[in-house]
């Protein structure tokens, strides 16, 4: 089996930071979308002004964010499927720790993707700064 030859899974290759990549991407996407819209409406157009450039920008942020989340989620899924072990990843082994962090990363990526999509849906319905 390939895994028997797999290298050891030392701690230094693992960190909690990878777990929170996707929600962090959501947070950045969310804040950027909000700030872009708020600054545009406050500084550049009147109350009835168009939102068109903001909608395109948010669409762009969304593509980038979903891409990053997909990458992080795929990475998590791969780790979750590492070796031949199944859930609940509760053994006191580097392998299960690796798989558990992968699984949690994967789930967080799914949630973050939904949250980013929710935010992005907003632009479909709003065309001006009111």
């Amino acid at each position: 089996m390939k895994t028997s030859a797999a290298p050891r899974l030392p701690e230094r290759h693992e960190s909690l930071w990878r777990l929170i990549v996707s929600p962090t991407v959501w947070a950045v996407h969310f804040m950027l979308s909000y700030i872009t819209a708020a600054v545009w409406c406050a500084k550049y157009v009147p109350r009835s002004g168009t939102l068109e450039p903001v909608r395109w920008l948010i669409a762009g942020y969304t593509l980038v964010a979903l891409g990053a989340i997909a990458w992080n989620g795929w990475d998590g899924y791969r780790r979750h499927r590492h070796g031949a072990s199944e859930l609940p990843h509760d053994a006191d082994t580097p392998g299960d720790r690796h798989r558990f962090l992968g699984f949690a990363t994967f789930l967080l990526a799914l949630l973050s993707a939904v949250a980013v999509a929710f935010a992005a849906l907003a632009v479909l319905y709003f065309h001006d700064c009111r």
């Binding site: 708020a38 939904v114 949250a115």
Partner: peptide, 20 residues
């Protein structure tokens, strides 16, 4: 009295938090 788009963004996150 914030712009509708701001309300919508925060509505979206407020609904998303119900999932976890």
């Amino acid at each position: 009295g914030l712009p509708g788009i701001s309300l919508a963004l925060f509505s979206a996150a407020s609904e998303a938090v119900a999932i976890p």
